[in-house]
Design a protein around this nucleic acid. Sequence first.
DNA 1: AAATATAAGACTATTTTAACCATATATTGT
DNA 2: ACAATATATGGTTAAAATAGTCTTATATTT
Lengths: 155, 155
Amino acid sequence: MLRFTKKTEYALLSLQYIASKDGMLVSAKEIAETIGISFEIIAKVLHLLGRSGITQSIQGAQGGYLLQRSPSMISLSDVISAIEGKPSQLVECVSSEDIDDQNCSCNVYSNCTIKDPMTVIQKKMDEMLTSITILDFMHLPVYHTISETIITKEQ
Amino acid sequence: MLRFTKKTEYALLSLQYIASKDGMLVSAKEIAETIGISFEIIAKVLHLLGRSGITQSIQGAQGGYLLQRSPSMISLSDVISAIEGKPSQLVECVSSEDIDDQNCSCNVYSNCTIKDPMTVIQKKMDEMLTSITILDFMHLPVYHTISETIITKEQ
DNA sequence: AAATATAAGACTATTTTAACCATATATTGT
DNA sequence: ACAATATATGGTTAAAATAGTCTTATATTT
Ligand code: SF4
Ligand code: SF4
């Protein structure tokens, strides 16, 4: 099922928020309250993002998180890898790095005749996921009124 | 997790096989044996493809399946929709048809500020999935030797 | 020392996926 | 008519992934 996990969505919401604060330290509590989700989940997500070097964390009182590189340098692909622990794979046997994993546990591997096209599709997907960045999540403001919406979209 | 389900992979393998037989009736048993997977699974997959009008089925002895339209007219998007019962959705609130589903059961919907970028990403995904067809699963032959591979790729 | 904040892992419940089993229906050929 | 072949359809079960909660440890500031 081609679906982002909730954790990935929370990560994107968090990164969007941190990016909007432009360099200021942001705590997990603040993000959790803004999004309206439990603190524990956000803390775990931010922790994973930190592990992968997407965010930088400052421990202790007055601590928090900030981005380790600019929004345009954080791709959707990076975020997914950070949250899921490995790069996105459309099928078991094809990863971004290895073209074709003979050690995969797919039980039809030896008879499979769609590995080559799957590799092509995986490549297209990778291109898409790396081309989308946190910057793409910042361009549209949060609309409050219809008129604001129209004005912004007309620009 | 951005991953195709096994059923979708079996569907693609089946369609690739039926397409390669170019108009001849193919039975579920034949496909199951070729792929090396249980008959029941393939039967269910073919049934779902039939329901969505991708394949045509002929019941009874000497029956089987054939494509209802040419391989280039069967998109990956069609196959996923057929197998999963509805079009692929990257997130709960954004579908290919409805821009933004206010009736979705996401518990952060009202605070969510990534719906617009998600709609853009969904559109890109849809474009990709509809642009890939069963024909793309037929162009590359199954390579048997290295020399064949090189010759084919150099063309 | 108390308060604040992140780090990290264990645990549970729910949902999704994968596979299997059973039965009904349709068609062909003898 | 009847046996053989083949699809149609639903139910059941087991495994895996997801979502969320809870707990404890560690670091920093005041
Ligand atoms: S071998 Fe074929 S069926 Fe198995 S995971 Fe790879 S593409 Fe899918
Ligand atoms: S409202 Fe936001 S968090 Fe909820 S499904 Fe839609 S995009 Fe994801």
